[in-house]
């Protein structure tokens, strides 16, 4: 564990908590893509199946449980409890167009052709593009609430910090995982446009509004 990895994990945790609190306190999931949340739940479940057969540390186990539970709670809020506030019409991204290629790629490019390893690889590929429905929703409505922007910033920063973690591990431990690194770069790049808007607008107190 190094500082980049820890900051990345905390940023990830913060993002998930911010989203849950936003939905809970405003009693609304307006502006949030349920499609992206479904993809994240698939990502966590596929990746953390190793909870069943591998023990790494209490930290690792607890974080995995928190990510899976928080993700399922978010979906419950969006599709059951606060269903009336969910913006169905704008959240029209077809997630099968992300799931199917991620699965095919995981079957073709992986470290080992075993069920758990393929699911891990699938989760890495899917996570890299899982935010697309959310970014699509923001681009369709042309704006995002500040709190949604903070959520997106924390979520995007997490993989960016992981990139620094991988650079550190390469030099300090001679350890690297090309699949995770390439997918992590793709994931972070997808947020760049948003990061730019966040820094130039939201941090200056303005609403995140896309040019018409």
């Amino acid at each position: 564990m190094n500082i980049f990895r820890l900051l990345g994990d905390l940023s990830h945790l913060l993002a998930i908590i911010v989203l849950l609190l936003k939905i809970w306190t405003t009693r609304s999931c307006a502006g949030i893509s349920g499609k992206s949340q479904i993809l994240f739940a698939i990502v966590y479940i596929a990746r953390y199946l190793d909870l069943l057969n591998t023990y790494i540390s209490a930290y690792n186990t607890i974080m995995k449980f928190v990510f899976i539970s928080a993700s399922l709670a978010t979906i419950f809020f969006m599709y059951v409890k606060f269903k009336a506030t969910y913006d169905h019409n704008h959240d029209s991204f077809r997630i099968e167009f992300l799931i199917a290629p991620a699965l095919v790629l995981a079957l073709l490019i992986n470290h080992e052709f075993s069920p758990l390893e393929i699911l891990w690889t699938f989760s890495i590929y899917l996570e890299s593009v899982a935010i697309l429905p959310q970014l699509f929703l923001v681009s369709k409505t042309g704006e995002a609430e500040s709190i949604t922007s903070h959520y997106l910033f924390a979520l995007g920063s997490y993989r960016g910090l992981y990139l620094l973690n991988w650079v550190y591990r390469y030099y300090a431990e001679d350890h690297y995982d090309l699949i995770a690194i390439v997918a992590g770069v793709v994931q972070t790049v997808l947020y760049c446009d948003f990061f730019y808007l966040y820094i130039t607008k939201v941090l200056k107190g303005k609403k995140l509004q896309l040019p018409a």
């Binding site: 190793d50 990510f67 390893e117 992981y162």
Partner: peptide
């Protein structure tokens, strides 16, 4: 590279 069986990152 590390052990394929174990992914210690989240």
């Amino acid at each position: 590279a590390g052990d394929v069986e174990e992914h210690d990152e989240l």
